[in-house]
Design a protein around this nucleic acid. Structure first.
Lengths: 256, 256
DNA sequence: CGAACCCTTGATTCAACTCAACCTCTGTGG
DNA sequence: CCACAGAGGTTGAGTTGAATCAAGGGTTCG
């Protein structure tokens, strides 16, 4: 399984944002642009990209950005904050389908039926760029580089979900959690954060839902990794002490 | 979870194909067009659609249409036959990520990295239309209705995978198999086949891989349904005797 | 006719679940 | 400043659904 997203996600995001003179909603001077928008945009066309963002929207921790069944109009690019997306059955069971962080796009599930198929909930105070999908489509007819980018984003989501299917269908609890941690830390690293330390934004229950296991099993597995000296855990804080051990668990558990 | 695909897939496909005077590769006179291509195409523009299909390709049972790592150039629309797609880990475990039938599109996973992320293997002799993706992109810049259609196809795949995640993460063996059967029969029905009878194209092991269970469990669950009079099974032949019971299992197992 | 593959069924094992108790934070209000 | 409530996290004991191991039957095809 491929955890690498670096091919399309440049990593020089740690550059400090200039204090903007006005609160202009614009991609062209957004320091996340290289994560969520295509590179190789013609400089003189770059400002056209700004049209795609209608406005920004702030979402408080615990609030819903959109819910299952809501009419789909826009995609959302995360500027700050952290989200989970989840689907649920009629009898109320929830499945977390993903965790999203700055620069990632949400809402693609809504295109097929003009209604959202999942809910997006902020796990911390967040801000998103609202991109009306009709505008995205219009603009991407004009700019092949944007068109290609939209296709890649959707394809990446399909590939990601393939990986989750592998996780859920074939792997044991330890492998799932190892894969989860490696994936999280890798994405955070691409955003300028530490390669070895992270603060979880989600509860054990949410991790469990994503990984197809119960919160107790998540907790036990964390403890096991900790006992083995692979990680250090204190509540939401996690430090990866032995990334190689994690990688080994992730892709060779059976042979151990 | 939504098993319904009817919103975008007209069902009048049972119409007999006229014997074509020449073996012209063309969407405009393909009897599957309404399944795999957009409706609402302007009659005079319809023939432009034909450009998208470069050629056809026959694949024998057991053969690979494309494999993980292969360079991505084209999408494939199934004309006849039945496929499975699967990903695998470094240590050789396989996960079937889907089963595809006539009118469905394969290859979307390759867009993000220009390389296929999964393998597509024919489960019976098959024929596919090869659609170079560059041409699809060119043409969809010209025709918004095609552009929208491509987006919907990708979004539908994302939504489908969300459903599989729910299946794998939250459901018990019986629910998974019930959901699987209902989904299969529904898609077959949309193609003019029976609503209650079907012949499985895949082995118990492949079903198990898709549903995250072992082949013995698949077999046992089939037997259980059979004992309960819900279905009739004889090897690959399955007849659904009590669809309501299946639906009940699928979305309320916990409350039983 | 035999080999290979697929499927079914039974017996046993085990990883993860359930249930339950307790601990640790964090924030609030007296 | 402390008490306390409530949410989240940990850990233990017992249970269980599905996996594993094993044997045998059916179908297909050279």
């Amino acid at each position: 399984m491929n955890l690498d997203i670096s091919s399309d996600t440049p990593q020089d995001l740690a550059a400090p944002a200039k204090a903007l003179p006005t609160i202009k909603v614009a991609c062209s001077n957004c320091n996340l642009r290289e994560l969520c928008m295509p590179i190789g945009f013609n400089p003189e066309d770059l400002h056209r990209l700004d049209e795609v963002v209608e406005k920004r929207r702030k979402i408080k921790q615990g609030e819903k950005l959109f819910g299952t069944g809501d009419v789909f109009k826009s995609l959302y690019a995360i500027r700050t904050g952290f989200f989970k997306t989840c689907v649920s059955t009629e009898d109320g069971r929830e499945q977390v389908t993903g965790f999203q962080m700055a620069g990632e796009i949400m809402g693609l599930d809504g295109i097929v039926s003009d209604h959202h198929n999942c809910s997006a909930i902020a796990l911390e105070d967040a801000e998103v760029c609202v991109m009306p999908f009709a505008d995205v489509e219009d603009l991407s007819r004009e700019f092949p580089v944007l068109q290609r980018h939209v296709h890649k984003i959707m394809s990446r989501e399909i590939v990601r979900e393939n990986g989750v299917m592998m996780l859920l269908g074939n792997m044991r609890a330890e492998e799932r959690l190892a894969a989860f941690l490696l994936n999280l830390v890798q994405r955070l690293h691409a955003r300028g954060f530490s390669q070895s330390e992270l603060t979880l934004r989600m509860t054990r229950e949410e991790i469990g839902s994503y990984l197809g296991m119960k919160l107790e099993t998540v907790s036990r597995t964390f403890s096991k990794f900790s006992d083995e000296g692979i990680i250090e855990v204190k509540q939401r804080y996690v430090k990866i002490l032995n990334p190689d051990a994690l990688k080994k668990i992730f892709n060779a558990q059976t042979c151990a």
